[in-house]
């Protein structure tokens, strides 16, 4: 579906040899431009929509005019927008994400405390999902057209078409409310260790996130495998007498995995985007929930900080994905066995 198309449309194979380093340099340059554009977009949205700044929203209606002016002075809201933007860029370059309005601490601090937990949740969900999706995709490809294929395809369609908060709600109602098997809320705590200490609470958030990923990736794996099954080298191998499962194991899986791994890099923003919903639904103390509460309390520095983190992660991720794809893809490297 859409993410599939997205990755396919984006594939640019990384070349080899000395051209590789030029390629890398060019990609990094492009990445920097992308990050710059991101800052422009988000900064513009936040500051142009509310020209007087969030003073009243942050301090409350009962704030006196002196308090509002002090706030604006402290945070630079009395400067023209373009100057605020340049100040913001200057801060970014120094690695300073500013201070939160509402949380009483630097943004980097707040994000630093929350991001690892989101990464843990995302990683676990991804691993669980891939562990199911990849075999499922291969199975569907091999049994293409049969009942199993239809059933799994239909299931994936339905999951893919369900808003994740609805899916999560159903899981909560069935497994937490009715069956009392797992808690409805994710484990709370400041550190990753706190969160991992109560794995029962992670079951539903991971399940909600993973189901969506499975729906996407198994479909993609299926079509990649089907493509590869009809390739010449497979027919050649079978003609040579190698059995089908061996062929699959040795060649098809490896070749099908390549585009899937390529897609992982581009899937990062989708992953983060999904985390907002999962974290707010299960009250998981990660970066998504931080973003959610900051949007409601007009905590602009936190909003900007989170977006920057994700943008950088996406740029780096997609670059890594392309490089890995180049390394893994035997056709690019010109060999097959």
């Amino acid at each position: 579906m859409s993410v599939v198309e997205q990755a396919q449309g984006a594939k640019t194979k990384a070349p080899n040899g000395s051209r590789f380093w030029w390629y890398l340099l060019r990609r990094i340059g492009q990445g920097l431009i992308v990050i710059l554009l991101v800052t422009l977009i988000v900064f513009a949205l936040l500051h142009l929509a509310l020209p007087e700044g969030p003073a009243v929203g942050v301090l409350g209606m009962q704030a006196t005019q002196e308090q509002i002016e002090a706030f604006n002075r402290e945070n630079g809201f009395d400067l023209p927008v373009w100057q605020q933007y340049l100040n913001f860029l200057g801060q970014l370059v120094r690695g300073d994400l500013g201070d939160s309005f509402k949380l009483n601490r630097p943004v980097a601090d707040a994000i630093g405390q929350r991001l690892p937990k989101t990464l843990v949740l995302a990683l676990i969900s991804m691993l669980v999902a891939l562990a199911i999706a990849i075999p499922m995709g291969i199975l569907q490809a091999v049994r293409r057209g049969k009942l199993l294929d239809y059933v799994l395809t239909t299931w994936n369609f339905v999951v893919y078409s369900t808003p994740s908060f609805f899916l999560g709600l159903i899981l909560v109602v069935v497994f937490a409310q009715w069956l009392h098997l797992v808690p409805a809320q994710a484990p709370q705590g400041d550190t990753v260790a706190d969160v991992l200490a109560k794995p029962a609470g992670l079951v539903l958030p991971v399940a909600t996130a993973a189901l969506g990923i499975i729906a996407t990736f198994s479909r993609y794996m299926r079509s990649a495998t089907i493509d590869n099954l009809s390739e010449d080298y497979v027919r050649t191998a079978r003609a040579k007498g190698t059995s089908v499962p061996v062929v699959i194991r040795r060649h098809v899986v490896r070749n099908s995995l390549t585009p899937v791994i390529a897609m992982l890099g581009y899937y990062l923003p989708v992953m983060f985007g999904g985390m907002i919903v999962v974290e707010s639904l299960f009250n998981y103390p990660g970066m998504g929930l931080l973003f959610w509460t900051s949007a409601q309390t007009s905590d602009y520095p936190v909003l900007l900080g989170c977006i920057m983190v994700i943008a950088v992660a996406t740029v780096v991720g997609s670059l890594l994905a392309d490089i890995i794809q180049a390394l893994l893809d035997p056709r690019t490297r010109g060999e097959f066995s």
């Binding site: 949380l103 009483n104 009392h180 797992v182 994710a186 484990p187 709370q188 706190d194 029962a200 103390p285």
Partner: peptide, 29 residues
């Protein structure tokens, strides 16, 4: 274990304590 939430709760099993939930937002500072 089935219903326990995260760490920050002080249920107060004894009669000599009481726990009060603060409104959402910045804590007492």
């Amino acid at each position: 274990t089935a219903c326990a939430p995260g760490g920050d709760t002080a249920g107060g099993e004894k009669k000599d304590s009481v726990s009060f939930a603060l409104q959402v937002g910045t804590g007492p500072n």
